[in-house]
Design a protein around this nucleic acid. Structure first.
Lengths: 244, 244
DNA sequence: CGTCAGATTGAGCAGCTTCAACGTATGTGG
DNA sequence: CCACATACGTTGAAGCTGCTCAATCTGACG
């Protein structure tokens, strides 16, 4: 495992929703077969793959995406440190989309055979892993709402709000200031707009004093205002610790 | 339980992905606390609710939705017979969206206490329930792609293709002919367009000979053509039986 | 200093929206 | 059995959001 990254973000993400026992934590650690690295802009898994392991993102940013007939790309999820990028491939078996490293990424691999053992021996841990995939699902629904009914500007604002909270929850920055070393072109493919329009959206948010974004660092100077513009309600991220 | 509905659709939906043992089937049956009915256009669960049970749709159509600040509605999922409408509330605890009965609905209730027992005693069954929520997730991703990158016409076509397959898989009609007793206004809120435009989309698909929709019955006269228009690839529904 | 990826700008166009009206089928009360 | 109400579908016209194409700018890097 690279010296500077570990499971801290992953455990923080889990413990934000429910306590883990030390046996559970150890069982998770023991389920890791190896660690790895992906260069920026390389595929971590591909549509049609049948992974024998799931990949936990320790550091960096990744995106799930599909390519359309005309070559356009739609990003359906952006993943940060502490997220599994393909835990769903454990029950689902076949990937129905690809996952791209948006930056250099450090990862840990969990063989499905080990995950299956976990589901037999640790029911509560199983529900916690299930929960992680349900959080992805909740975020998907929020994106659907944003894509269907919000303007591109509100949608971009919404994503900034979401990433701030998600990154803060794993100790990477704060809800109003965090690293986001990815391009406007990548964001455009998540927002369902052209790169040109995405740029106009960013400029409009800047002009309104709601977004500072330079050198891969995002600052949201007026959280209350951007939350209102984005109709952002943090509850869909389920950051409440309780028995799961 | 009403005489005309049962768990057939649910078991078909599961068995399309993996075999169930008779003990597992029985355990599922025994987990039902009661049956119920919802009138069309009533909420089955509401955003903010903390359900103590999950609801399996035995018959009818339901939709997950969120309401926006300006009163607009976005539907993020359409559920058919055999679908759990809120299985995710078991690990997630709090509903981050509401679910509406689009038609009269017959349901079965599974108390979370019973589901928790299942996750302790039946690891494989637990993974199958997990799988069901992952199928919802896969559909969410497909909707995100459609909302972000397809025209309203292709998007509507895509939904027709999807519903055909999903309904066929539970024995309600065939992929090219099935009941869909819901309004264009409801569909518009799923497609992320205005009711007026949704109507124009429907007419355009009719004019192209790809859609017949009258009296709540959908026929897709040229499956190959509509699949191509919609860029529909059935694989995201994971209708493959294998060890999960 | 040249190169290249990414960001920015302008201009014209297409898809979808809004508003408003009208059509059509079904049901209900007098 | 008619008068009316209601829900849903359909149509037209004007306007805005976001698109495409094409060019230009900027900063990082070899």
């Amino acid at each position: 495992m690279p010296g500077e990254v570990g499971l801290d973000e992953f455990f923080k993400r889990l413990e934000a929703r429910d306590d883990l026992g030390s046996a559970e934590r150890q069982a998770l650690r023991n389920s890791i077969s190896s660690f790895g690295h992906f260069d920026s802009q390389t595929d971590m898994v591909k549509e049609g793959d049948r992974p024998k392991r799931s990949t936990l993102l320790l550091n960096g940013f990744a995106a799930r995406y599909k390519i359309l007939a005309n070559g356009e790309r739609q990003i359906s999820a952006i993943h940060v440190a502490g997220d599994f990028i393909d835990l769903h491939s454990f029950p689902l078996k076949e990937m129905d989309h690809s996952v791209l490293a948006l930056t250099d990424c450090e990862v840990a691999f969990f063989p499905h055979s080990e995950l299956e053992k976990l589901t037999t021996a640790y029911p509560h841990l199983t529900r916690m892993l299930w929960l992680l995939t349900l959080l992805d699902s909740a975020i998907h629904r929020e994106w659907i709402t944003a894509l269907g009914r919000l303007s591109a500007e509100a949608r971009h604002a919404h994503l900034m709000c979401e990433l701030g909270i998600r990154l803060e929850a794993v100790g990477h920055g704060t809800r109003d200031k965090f690293d986001l070393p990815i391009t406007q072109t990548d964001l455009a493919d998540a927002m369902g707009v052209s790169a040109v329009h995405e740029n106009r959206v960013v400029q409009s948010l800047r002009a309104k004093g709601l977004l500072i974004w330079q050198g891969g660092m995002v600052t949201l100077p007026d959280l209350e205002a951007i939350y209102q513009l984005a109709e952002f309600d943090v509850r869909y991220l389920h950051l409440v610790k309780e028995h799961r």
